[in-house]
Computed example of a mutant assay.
Amino acid sequence: MAGEVHAMWQKRQQGEFKGVDGVPIRWISIREPQNERCVVMVNGRNESFWKYQELFYEFSRKGYDVYAYDHRGQGASGRLTNDSELGHVICFDDYVTDLHTFIENVVNKDAYKHRFLLAHSMGGAVATLYLEHYQTPFNAVVLNAPMFGINMPAPLKLVASSIAKIMEHYQSQPSYVLGKKPYREEPFEANDQCQSQLRYGWAKHLYQLHPELRLGGPSPRWVWQALAAAKHCIRDVEHIDTPVLLLQAGDDKVVDNHSHVIFCTKCTECEMKVIPHARHELLMEKDCLRNQALKDTLEFFESYS
């Protein structure tokens, strides 16, 4: 990370555009003149393009230009509340509109023979809604552990959205949903995201170096907006006409894996692969699991190049 990856990162291009309601959305790209294909990365909640430098390096070495941006309200992009660590959104569709704007105004400025989309977790829901509502320039899409449902006890699923709406009603201004707090660094042993201590430690060190990237728990509004968006991903699946590979983490404790099965059953363009024993952050996992996710992704993209 301190050698070739860092050297690549120093050569990145970066910029900013105005998202919905004028929120500044910051982006980066890593480009080489000879490349004829690109991949657009759509990250998850509480993430930033800073986190995926290793991945971008690997794609760049394979001949892909890389584009990535940070969602409104997190990472390097503009915040929506006075509390910079509160995960909040007014409308989930704003994420989708921002992605469309990024593709139209930044990515599509360069001519490529092939374009690919890679999305993780919440970004998987954003990317899916984008595919369902816009004409897409992408040849193929890979969704890593997409948020088509949030993992929670079955009885809570029935009332979670209603409870979140009630909590929002009683908050004079946006604040954390019950039980969630500002950013707090959890020890590796307590995390349910990945099993690579090196990558986990590197990501946490990144937040120490750049505290402005930190994000804590979500607001009640984010919760019910996200739950509604996840349902809409499955409801409108018949509008997808782009080949999709869904990579599921076998030991995911964050998103609802059963929702992936429902999605792929309804989506004629979807192929699903399960990576056994992997946790939610497939691209931050230990090598034996992460390598499989990366291999499946690259092979899928190559089959549509």
Rank of each mutant, 00 (worst) to 15 (best):
residue 145 A to R: 00
residue 226 A to M: 02
residue 226 A to Y: 03
residue 156 L to S: 03
residue 241 D to A: 04
residue 12 R to A: 03
residue 24 P to I: 12
residue 148 F to M: 11
residue 216 G to Q: 01
residue 99 L to D: 11
residue 3 G to Y: 12
residue 132 E to Y: 03
residue 214 R to N: 10
residue 270 C to K: 02
residue 216 G to M: 01
residue 187 P to A: 01
residue 129 L to G: 03
residue 142 V to H: 08
residue 22 G to Q: 09
residue 227 L to G: 04
residue 56 F to Y: 12
residue 57 Y to I: 01
residue 184 R to S: 07
residue 67 Y to R: 08
residue 151 N to S: 04
residue 121 S to H: 02
residue 36 E to L: 14
residue 153 P to L: 03
residue 32 E to D: 15
residue 7 A to Q: 15
residue 158 L to F: 06
residue 25 I to Q: 13
residue 114 H to V: 08
residue 55 L to V: 02
residue 158 L to N: 05
residue 3 G to Q: 07
residue 181 K to C: 04
residue 161 S to D: 08
residue 58 E to I: 00
residue 99 L to G: 11
residue 126 V to E: 05
residue 250 G to H: 01
residue 195 Q to H: 13
residue 170 Y to S: 14
residue 294 L to P: 10
residue 44 G to N: 01
residue 162 S to N: 08
residue 224 W to K: 11
residue 250 G to A: 00
residue 35 N to M: 15
residue 171 Q to T: 03
residue 269 E to I: 05
residue 186 E to D: 10
residue 214 R to H: 11
residue 29 S to M: 09
residue 155 P to R: 15
residue 62 K to C: 13
residue 30 I to C: 12
residue 137 P to G: 03
residue 276 P to I: 02
residue 291 N to Q: 11
residue 228 A to P: 06
residue 141 V to I: 04
residue 201 G to E: 15
residue 107 V to N: 04
residue 265 T to L: 12
residue 274 V to K: 09
residue 6 H to F: 13
residue 25 I to G: 13
residue 31 R to S: 09
residue 262 I to F: 15
residue 184 R to H: 09
residue 98 D to F: 08
residue 66 V to I: 03
residue 49 F to Q: 09
residue 225 Q to R: 04
residue 50 W to L: 13
residue 223 V to E: 08
residue 290 R to E: 00
residue 244 V to T: 12
residue 68 A to T: 14
residue 159 V to P: 07
residue 135 Q to P: 13
residue 105 N to E: 15
residue 3 G to L: 10
residue 190 A to P: 01
